[in-house]
Simulated assay, not measured.
Amino acid sequence: MIDSKRLDDIARRISDSLPESVRHLQEDVQRQVRSSLQSGFERMDLVTREDFDIQVALLERTRERLAELEARIAALEGQASPAEDR
């Protein structure tokens, strides 16, 4: 999920871009924008970059382990084949 500092920054930028006549409502606008952004991001089911990178690393290790196991199975099957011929 996006961190709250980024949400606050986005909300502040949006409220800063509002016309001067509505700036007195800035705090309320920031709260509403932040709330809207947060609920929108939650519906998108986003993950943080850190969580994504962790999952990528885990997948890479899993693929390496799978390749090792496939090689071991192939070697064991190769050893078993000559014994079956006898």
Rank of each mutant, 00 (worst) to 15 (best):
M1E: 15
D3H: 12
D3S: 11
D3N: 14
D3K: 10
S4D: 10
S4Q: 11
K5E: 14
R6Y: 06
L7I: 15
L7N: 00
L7G: 02
L7T: 07
L7A: 06
I10P: 01
I10M: 13
R12G: 05
R13G: 08
R13M: 13
R13V: 09
R13W: 13
I14V: 15
I14D: 00
D16R: 06
S17F: 05
S17Q: 08
P19K: 05
E20D: 15
E20P: 02
E20G: 06
V22Q: 11
R23T: 15
R23L: 14
H24N: 11
H24V: 13
L25W: 04
L25P: 00
Q26K: 15
Q26V: 09
D28L: 15
D28I: 15
V29Q: 00
R31G: 03
R31M: 11
R31P: 01
Q32F: 07
V33H: 05
R34M: 05
S35P: 00
S35Q: 12
S36W: 08
L37M: 06
L37D: 00
L37C: 05
Q38L: 07
Q38P: 03
Q38K: 13
Q38T: 14
Q38H: 05
S39P: 00
S39H: 13
G40H: 10
E42D: 14
E42K: 13
R43V: 06
M44I: 01
M44C: 01
M44L: 14
D45L: 10
D45C: 04
L46K: 03
T48C: 07
T48N: 05
T48I: 04
T48V: 01
E50T: 08
E50I: 04
D51V: 03
D51E: 14
D53H: 03
I54M: 00
Q55C: 04
V56I: 14
V56E: 04
A57V: 03
L58H: 01
L58W: 06
E60P: 00
R61P: 01
R63Y: 14
R63L: 13
E64A: 15
E64V: 15
E64H: 07
R65H: 11
R65C: 00
A67M: 09
A67E: 12
E68D: 11
E68F: 01
E68N: 07
L69S: 07
L69N: 05
E70T: 02
E70N: 11
E70K: 12
A71I: 02
R72V: 07
A74S: 07
A74G: 03
A74Y: 02
A75H: 12
L76R: 05
E77Q: 12
E77M: 11
E77G: 04
E77W: 03
G78V: 03
G78P: 01
Q79D: 11
Q79H: 05
A80R: 13
A80D: 00
A80W: 03
S81D: 10
P82V: 09
P82I: 08
A83W: 02
D85V: 12
D85I: 10
